[in-house]
């Protein structure tokens, strides 16, 4: 069956992140001057305005900072997923990223619950970093 959900549209800033995902890696920029790990990607560190930057590979772990449960499909391709969960996960390295929590009953989720990445390659074009509760 064709994949009908929207896909990421990498641009000059975000391309290295999505290329990392193809190798099942979460890549983020780290400022060489102040060590701040930033997201979303940018040419300059928002903390210290240095452009001196490394890319690092983050661990696969984080915690649910917040989450919501969709009961209406705002896009028809998500109809069969209802109810589904989008969440902001705080990665161990610091960045907050928007993702899905999968593999768990939405009613069992809590903020600050530890989660680990699961890679969704069902689009066959992009690997999407999703997360599941660490203990499931």
């Amino acid at each position: 069956m064709a994949y009908e959900k929207p896909l990421p549209k990498p641009n000059a800033d975000t391309r290295p992140f999505w290329e990392g995902c193809q190798e099942n890696q979460l890549r983020f920029q780290k400022c060489r001057h102040c060590d701040h790990i930033r997201w979303p990607p940018s040419v300059i560190c928002p903390k210290c305005h240095s452009s001196d930057t490394d890319w690092i590979v983050a661990s696969d772990k984080g915690m649910i900072y917040s989450y919501v449960v969709y009961h209406i499909a705002f896009h028809p391709a998500f109809e069969n997923d209802l109810p589904y969960v989008t969440a902001v996960v705080k990665l161990a390295e610091g960045p907050y990223i928007l993702t899905n929590i999968v593999g768990s009953d939405p009613s069992k989720l809590k903020c600050d619950m530890p989660v680990v990445v699961v890679w969704d390659d069902s689009s066959q074009e992009f690997n999407l970093p999703k997360f599941k509760p660490l203990n499931e």
Binding site: S66, C111, K130
Partner: peptide, 30 residues
């Protein structure tokens, strides 16, 4: 019933203001 993807968050089914304010409200509940 349909939403033009505005950014990469759409890949995860994240659409619109209700979800974004609900996200803030959920954290507040915690």
């Amino acid at each position: 019933t349909n939403s033009e993807p505005a950014d990469d968050n759409a890949a995860f089914g994240e659409f619109g203001r209700a979800a974004q304010f609900a996200m803030a409200a959920r954290r507040a509940m915690y």
